Simulated assay, not measured.
Amino acid sequence: MRIIWGGASTPQTNQAIADFVATHIAGCESGFADFTTMGVEENGALLAGVVFHNYAPEAGVIELSAASTSKRWLTRPVLKGMFGYPLEQIGCQMVVLRVSERNAGMISIAERFGFTRHRIPRLRGRDEAEIIFTLTDNDWRAHPVNQR
Rank of each mutant, 00 (worst) to 15 (best):
A22G: 05
A22T: 07
A22M: 05
A22V: 06
A22C: 06
A22S: 12
A22K: 02
T23P: 00
T23G: 09
T23D: 10
T23H: 11
T23W: 04
H24G: 10
H24R: 15
H24N: 15
I25K: 09
I25P: 06
I25D: 04
A26Y: 08
A26T: 14
A26L: 11
G27A: 12
G27C: 13
G27N: 11
G27F: 09
G27V: 12
G27T: 12
G27W: 08
C28I: 04
C28L: 05
C28E: 08
C28K: 12
C28R: 14
E29S: 15
S30T: 15
S30D: 14
S30A: 15
S30C: 10
G31P: 05
G31I: 04
G31F: 05
G31M: 07
F32V: 09
F32H: 09
F32I: 03
F32N: 04
A33I: 08
A33G: 03
A33W: 00
D34G: 02
D34M: 00
D34E: 05
D34S: 04
F35I: 04
F35P: 00
F35D: 04
F35T: 03
F35Y: 14
F35C: 01
T36S: 01
T36Y: 00
M38Y: 00
M38N: 08
M38D: 01
M38K: 00
G39T: 10
G39M: 03
G39R: 00
G39D: 08
G39A: 13
G39S: 13
V40Q: 09
V40M: 10
V40Y: 06
V40E: 03
V40D: 02
E41C: 13
E41P: 01
E41Y: 02
E41F: 01
E41K: 03
E41S: 08
E42W: 08
E42A: 15
N43H: 11
N43E: 12
G44T: 08
G44H: 05
G44R: 02
G44C: 06
A45G: 07
L46H: 01
L46R: 01
L46Q: 02
L46K: 06
L47A: 15
L47K: 15
L47V: 15
L47F: 10
L47Y: 11
A48W: 00
A48L: 09
A48G: 11
A48C: 06
A48R: 05
G49E: 03
G49W: 04
G49A: 03
G49Y: 01
V50I: 11
V50D: 06
V50K: 09
V50H: 07
V50M: 13
V51N: 02
V51Q: 02
V51G: 02
V51W: 03
V51E: 02
V51S: 02
F52D: 09
F52N: 11
F52I: 11
F52S: 12
F52Y: 15
F52L: 15
H53Q: 05
H53P: 00
N54I: 07
N54A: 15
N54L: 11
N54E: 14
Y55G: 08
Y55L: 14
Y55S: 11
Y55Q: 08
Y55M: 10
Y55R: 14
A56M: 14
A56Y: 07
A56W: 07
A56V: 14
P57I: 13
P57N: 12
P57W: 09
E58N: 10
E58C: 06
E58R: 11
E58G: 04
E58K: 12
